[in-house]
């Protein structure tokens, strides 16, 4: 079974569980992470009554849950105010500036995570939410690369973002900056 098929099946599975149960859609980081917990083993009145199936989360997926998911959502696509990861964030890794930029975004740079864990988290989320947009020869982040990028604080995130995106257009990674437009203001990117 391919990864996308597995994701789709799990998504159906979870949305079904959400309709029948009173728990909302279990925000599983890693729709591709198939490990689930048998509800009868969870000592909680509602989980047992509703038979809610929970995902087991660990490692980088857990770090995503704790540090990113609240706003970016378990599918990497959330409200218009929050930049979308899904099908997009991987494009930044096509240039050295873009690779550094996604480490330097304020909430990434300042996350309460070590450089090693942050590297693992970035590698996980890039593959999970934007695997198709990664360059063929994608080199995973290393602790050293994250440490180096993190040591440089951006003066203006918005200006830097635009520079990086303009660079990606020049490189021919994307035909226009459109894909990076803010959902709240499509004229801006």
């Amino acid at each position: 079974m391919t990864r996308s098929m597995a994701s789709a099946l799990l998504a159906i599975f979870f949305s079904g569980a959400a309709i029948s149960a009173s728990e909302p859609l279990p925000t599983s980081p890693g729709v591709g992470a198939p490990e689930t917990v048998d509800p009868s083993t969870v000592p909680d009145v509602l989980v047992r009554r509703n038979g809610t199936v929970l995902p087991r989360v660990s490692g980088a997926a857990e770090d995503y849950s704790r540090h990113c998911q609240g706003c970016h959502g378990h599918l990497g696509d959330s409200v218009v105010e929050v930049p979308r990861l899904k099908g997009r964030v991987g494009l930044f890794t096509h240039s050295p500036e873009g690779r550094a930029y996604i480490v330097q975004v304020p909430n990434v740079l300042q996350a309460h995570l070590s450089d090693a864990r942050l590297a693992a988290l970035l590698n996980w989320l890039l593959r999970e939410y934007s695997g198709a947009e990664l360059p063929g020869a994608f080199m995973p982040y290393t602790e050293a690369e994250v440490a180096q990028a993190r040591a440089h604080r951006l003066e203006s995130v918005i200006d830097r973002r635009r520079e990086v995106i303009d660079g990606l257009v020049r490189l021919g990674v994307v035909p226009s900056p459109e894909i990076f437009a803010f959902a709240t203001d499509p004229a801006r990117y």
Binding site: E23, P26, S28, P29, V47, L54, P55, V57
Partner: peptide
């Protein structure tokens, strides 16, 4: 209105 607390996974 109020605060909810949904379980989203087992660590």
């Amino acid at each position: 209105h109020c605060s909810s607390a949904a379980i989203v996974g087992q660590v």
